Amino acid sequence: MIKKAENIIVGISIGDLNGIGSEVLLKTFEDSRMLELCTPVIFANVKTLSFVKKSYELTAILHGIDRLDQIVLGKINVLNVWQEGVEINYGINDEKIGKYAIRSFVAATKALREGNIDVLVTAPINKFNIQSEDFKFPGHTDYLDQELEGNALMLMVQENLRVGLLTDHIPLNEVASHLTEELIIKKIETVKQTIIQDFSINKPKIAVLGLNPHCGDGGVIGKEDDAILKPTLKKLFEKGTLVFGPFAADGFFGSNQYDKYDAVIAVYHDQGLIPFKTLSFGKGVNYTAGLNKIRTSPDHGTAYDIAGKGIADFNSFKEAVYLAIDVYNSRNQYAEISQRPLKTKEK
């Protein structure tokens, strides 16, 4: 059964309160028309967010709740994950603030896993100050991969440009050693299924970038493209996956070849994210593909340098909300179609 728009519950983890996350999320819902598309639930504390709202001279009305069964549709709900006061110092890297970011995120993930919210949008965290004995993950994605079913994959999205990664938050000098046939097949199959069920494209065309400059130039600048990437892509193509490459990354983006494909897979983080962020003009979204639940986030970080100044652009966060809703609807429609019995011709 497809939910009405306003009945879609969008959970939001607060991120680093000293960064711009709380500003961009409150600015997003300052427009009351957003409440016609979904009902937000912010995992934080209503007094803390009221302070943030006042500091940015915003006017949206916040509805504090203590339990998820108290959610009011069409309101900006704030679930009180903590009760005590929090000292906010915009632009400061603070370990205490990092602990509140994780309390919010863990509570929101639990709600997502248990079906109390429909989708999750995460505000930016500081990967350094969130580390503790209880949370030893490099970021959101690795924790979600542990807590939710599936194989998490970072997919950057802006309209028809979708860039996934074979490897994400690992040092550059370890990328080549991580490339295996098993990893490449798993990631490409994840992207393929994501494009089908979450973006409603039945036969996606997928491009894969090469590891080395010029894809190794026949082995002169590295052998990984010829030895690992090419034969693995050939094997997948022969089994029916429309995968192409490897392509030299510089020419691929420079000549607009990405327009011909439904998804592009980069081998490592910066190879994919630098051109993506250049092309997305501040409206890009980070989507965690491959999970049984839906999570999106803006494509920027805490931006301490502009936090508290009221000048943060909220478009990427707003697009993250839009994408979460679109994927939720697309995934439900896919499930509904998949369950329909096949029609047989009458004799």
Rank of each mutant, 00 (worst) to 15 (best):
F281T: 07
Y287P: 04
L26D: 02
H214Q: 07
E182V: 14
G308A: 00
M1D: 07
K192L: 15
S50A: 03
G74A: 09
G74T: 08
D66N: 07
M154A: 08
I42Q: 03
E149Y: 04
N202D: 15
Y268R: 08
I306E: 00
I188T: 11
N329R: 09
E36L: 04
E189A: 14
S55D: 12
L73P: 05
T278P: 04
S280G: 06
I201W: 13
L112Y: 11
V327N: 15
K235N: 03
D118E: 15
V264P: 13
D313Q: 09
G139T: 09
L25I: 09
D145P: 06
P298F: 08
E84T: 12
Y258L: 10
K53F: 03
D118F: 12
A249P: 09
A60G: 02
H178W: 05
A263R: 14
T296M: 05
I102Q: 08
H169V: 15
F135I: 08
L342K: 14
E30R: 02
K75C: 11
Y90H: 07
F199Q: 15
K136Y: 05
Q83R: 06
M1Q: 07
E174P: 01
K234N: 05
G115L: 13
I294Y: 14
E159G: 10
V321S: 00
Q158T: 13
L148A: 10
Q271C: 05
Q70D: 04
L79I: 05
Q333N: 14
P341C: 13
D69A: 11
H63E: 11
K239G: 01
D259F: 05
K260E: 15
A312M: 06
D69I: 09
